[in-house]
Amino acid sequence: MNIQELLWKYAEGQCSEPEKAEMERILVADESLREELRLVQEVQSALAGMEVEQPSMRFAQNVMEALPKKLYAPTAIEPLLPDTLKTLFWAIVGILVMMVALVGKVHGPVGGQLPYFDKLAASLDVVARLVPADMALYFVLVFLALTVLLMFDRLLAKGKWQVHP
């Protein structure tokens, strides 16, 4: 490494201890090199003082307007659950609706002249009495579990919930 390279290295503070000692020994003896070091430091300081330049105020907006619009459209995520579970869910809903409707029809005046929702409650009450308690419990649990699973799957597929690794 020549003396000029060493001078820059010294000015940047990158010299090893022996190099630094050697440089300082030369600098003490050589006035012209001391003048060179001063110039090197001036250049270093000026270069370090370079300033970042700014584009026009509308730059970011111009870039956004120039971007292709549908290059990275939100990706549709396939539902995780199989269609059979959906079928099962709607089958349970269908069975429940049919049972309530049938009970209402067969028992005719269930609830008499009561308002619509009271009639429905009366029909459900009859259905509940017709179905054994443990079977009804399983039925309700399966129905609730399917409802939660399907709702969660739907939210994920819409991208409303995202799982970050």
Binding site: E53, A60, V63
Partner: peptide
């Protein structure tokens, strides 16, 4: 856009 605003000065 955040990335653009972050690096626009340096790129420019």
């Amino acid at each position: 856009r955040v990335l653009v605003e972050r690096y626009q000065d340096y790129v420019f």
